[in-house]
Nucleic acid binder design. Structure first.
Lengths: 342, 342
DNA sequence: CTGTTAGCGCTTTCAA
DNA sequence: TTGAAAGCGCTAACAG
């Protein structure tokens, strides 16, 4: 990049500017910069002159104009409840990676579990012309009907499988892994496990709840479920505080999310000065700090990369192939067991 | 939204389609849907007819076409090292929130600390016509020269203040808060503090290092710095493992990031079966799980919302006002002290 | 009060 | 092997 005589840095050029500067037509320039010089048998010297100019001045193709013409934006939209939530942050990062690798960009938006905001986010992204949309929906599938024009953009749901959803949906094996987790916890403490559960109305959580109940039934122990509407650290703290008011510390607790777990453990540590070493906890999602805790921890680690991979594949299949992939996709979580001087 | 006789759902309409269907011109329709009916004194009946049609069929304005014409995209780009890193995830969420509130969308990209990828991310976003760009750069400011055309897009740096950067830069008060953190740690253990430091070449980390050294000097204790090139959990684990090979556990450790801390604590817990209760640790950034640990923890909590707010304000000032704000912006971190049966 | 027109920068088709 | 022209859906300026 050179600096012109006036000392100004002209900045990258548009196709038209390059055409004007080099004296060739826009078409010729475009063939060269699009790497189609061979195919159109552009004269070597012409090509060299154009390439030299581009190398010198830079080039920025206006994707906005291109999109308008081609009806393709090479952009994918993502709507999640909260970008700062570690699970969704990982999912976002994994999706962004796949977008980048395929020359696309990712547009992100948070719904904060608010149906209205989710709706506005979705329309906003559609207005921006995204080719595909990945949503972790807080509304049932019906809300997404009639939003699209002629099947565009492609639509894939993640994390939450509403019953009878017409859209391809990629989720973790919530019920099965909750079952495994609960069974193992019961096995360890040889007794009941209390489930601290946020947002039981969400499909993913409902599945975990079902897995928990099934495992309790199979093991012949009584289920004990404490629920709250907000998946927040403070809600978890309030839940265990209320529980402690009615009796001693449970032997084993299971949490529907890391958020819950943080609230529960924080409150317990606060009450008892430290987390009792014989407490056994189970949770969904993992965090490295869990391994520094002096207690036995089992966690179901969701496969964010796997979910992103599948969701992205579904999206591309719809976009490129026009075909709608299978509706249900389940990505397995992994149960990891750590610690426990037990 | 009605469903037509054929049972097809027609989907939202463009301005032209609405104009054709209602028999008015595009301009008239646009005035109505843009809420400028009053201003242009559109006849009440005309307005009612158009609004009824829109209510019935839906409307989606093509932002792509609008952008091409107005040379404004109402989009902001964000480039960070890693979207999954909790600090950047929070920053992203906070920025997205401000974008949404002002009718903009956020485009995200990760650089993975790779200069080349950062470059491609930035050009990619510029090609998409973003009005503004927020970057947590892994390259010195010179790399960003000559990328823009006529001062667009607006550019703001966050998290990393390279010396003599010509761009507005918003960072935490790394040096000052590292100084306070170190001083307090020394005060508690009445002795030296060992600093486990990742990526000392980054400006933000260099500042923390400087604050640490200054506090050690003032207190008259010897600084002890262990560095690594990657800010990863595993790197922290390796660092403390190497350190433990040469002697006993330090009385106080300080970490340049949560990632380092997780590695250090994980390894210590692994070695000693549990984290010794008399270990005192200091770190940057906070996590709720820290409060469940049986040790004394001091952490400098960065103000992601504050950083996002300042960065966004700088951006808007450049975009709307054309004026370049002041270059240096420092957002204060808060030192929080927790636990410590000590 | 409403309509017409001329582009934004690109891709696409056709022509030379 | 290169060029010219049309048009994507919108906005903005002007004309009635």
């Amino acid at each position: 990049m050179t600096i012109d005589d006036a000392g100004r840095r002209p900045g990258p050029k548009t196709l038209a500017e390059i055409a004007a500067a080099t004296g060739f037509s826009r078409t010729t320039v475009r063939f060269v910069v699009a790497g189609e010089a061979e195919r159109h048998r552009i004269k070597a010297e012409t090509r060299a002159r154009i390439e030299a100019y581009v190398a010198d001045h830079g080039l920025v193709v206006d994707h906005t104009a291109r999109s308008l013409r081609t009806r393709r934006s090479e952009a994918i939209g993502l709507v999640v409840p909260d970008l700062a939530n570690p699970f969704f942050a990982r999912l976002t990062a994994e999706l962004e990676e796949r977008c980048r690798a395929s020359g696309r960009v990712l547009l992100t938006a948070s719904s904060h579990e608010d149906p209205e905001r989710e709706g506005r986010a979705v329309t906003g992204l559609i207005e921006r012309g995204v080719d595909g949309l990945v949503v972790a929906p807080c509304r049932p599938p019906a809300a997404f009907r009639g939003l699209r024009r002629e099947g565009r953009p492609a639509l894939v749901m993640v994390d939450r499988a509403y019953p009878a959803s017409p859209w391809p949906t990629v989720v973790s094996d919530n019920e099965a892994s909750a079952f495994r987790l609960t069974r193992r916890l019961i096995e360890i403490v040889r007794g009941p496990v209390e489930f601290f559960c946020a947002c039981p109305a969400l499909p993913s959580i409902a599945a975990r709840l079902a897995g928990y109940r099934a495992a309790a039934r199979v093991a012949g122990v009584a289920p004990a479920v404490l629920t709250t509407d907000r998946d927040e650290v403070e809600a978890g703290a309030r839940l265990i505080a209320a529980r402690l008011a009615t009796g001693g510390l449970p032997r084993a607790v299971m949490c529907s999310s890391l958020m819950m777990l943080e609230g529960v453990l924080g409150e317990v540590a606060h009450r008892f000065k430290r987390v009792p070493a014989d407490l056994v906890v189970g949770t969904f999602d993992h965090h490295p700090l869990l391994e520094a805790l002096p207690i036995r921890i089992l966690s179901v680690r969701q496969d964010e990369a796997g979910i992103a991979e599948r969701a992205f594949a579904c999206l591309i299949a719809q976009i490129d192939g026009g075909r709608r992939e299978a509706i249900g996709h389940v990505v397995e979580g992994r149960l990891v067991e750590r610690g426990g001087a037990a």
